[in-house]
Design a protein around this nucleic acid. Structure first.
Lengths: 138, 138
DNA sequence: GCAAAAGTCTACTAAAATGGTAGGGAATAT
DNA sequence: ATATTCCCTACCATTTTAGTAGACTTTTGC
């Protein structure tokens, strides 16, 4: 399961994508519209900014905004930024690989099945973007 | 990621499947062969027994054994037993569904994408069994 | 029937992750 | 200058994770 943090991040990102024309959007607005704790959301948006997904502006008329068009924000990237690995086993993770301590990977069947699961999952998450999430709305 | 518990469960189950001819296998043997803490493994095997996957025998010559042929033990079932939901969002889980509190599911695009991820994941996990994990070894 | 061999059960624990909250600081617009 | 808004550090309670301890029960085989 995705953590609340990542779930909230997705809700916030889609809200921003749906309101690009507004320019910078207040944290408090997102917080109210999507029913997310304000202070928790602050942390999340800041993290997304540091990761290069969002930009921000301070002072009156400020807020957060998408720094890239929604078509360029892959879902897999967002998940990895906040939750870490997408694979079910460390020894099968592309971005957070760790050697397996319980078996020899060369002859481990579990390894191969879980790599298949990973590939099937990534087939979706690496190709779908924020824009796809929006398009599905209609 | 799968918890250590579930990872260990898979290692133990495949060990048992590879050694069906032995009859009951000692916890301590599995623990040593697969380098899993003995006491932790005890809990895990007991849980698998209560869930109907394993049988056991006490006293000399006792141990744990698979209660069904490896072809009938779906990977998805093992994961759900020990780790719970496989889906990435509660509002998209087949076995542990919970309503989403942040949006209206009927118009939520995230929902649909995550359902697609779930289906792609389950395509593997619902069809592969312990036996498939073994067959991949050759 | 007794001892050894095994699994069973209850309870405990330390460490980490999760899901927040508090409050002041820094930058910006007017 | 001041109000607005994001930025930052620190803290906190609860739950989950990964394990450990130790006594208890069942079974086997002599």
């Amino acid at each position: 399961m995705l953590s609340k943090k990542t779930q909230y991040a997705f809700h916030a990102l889609t809200y921003l994508a749906e309101n690009v024309e507004k320019g910078p959007v207040l944290i408090s607005e997102i917080s109210q519209e999507r029913k997310i704790s304000l202070k928790f959301l602050e942390n999340i948006l800041l993290e997304l900014k540091k990761a290069g997904v969002l930009g921000s502006k301070k002072g009156k008329g400020g807020g957060y905004y998408l720094i890239k068009p929604p078509e360029e924000v892959k879902l897999a990237k967002v998940i990895r930024m906040l939750d870490g690995p997408i694979a079910l086993l460390p020894c099968v993770s592309l971005n957070y690989y760790e050697r397996c301590e319980n078996c020899d990977e060369a002859v481990c069947g579990l390894n191969r099945v879980m790599a298949e699961v990973r590939d099937n999952t990534l087939k979706v998450l690496e190709n779908k973007t924020l824009a796809d999430v929006l398009r599905n709305k209609e």
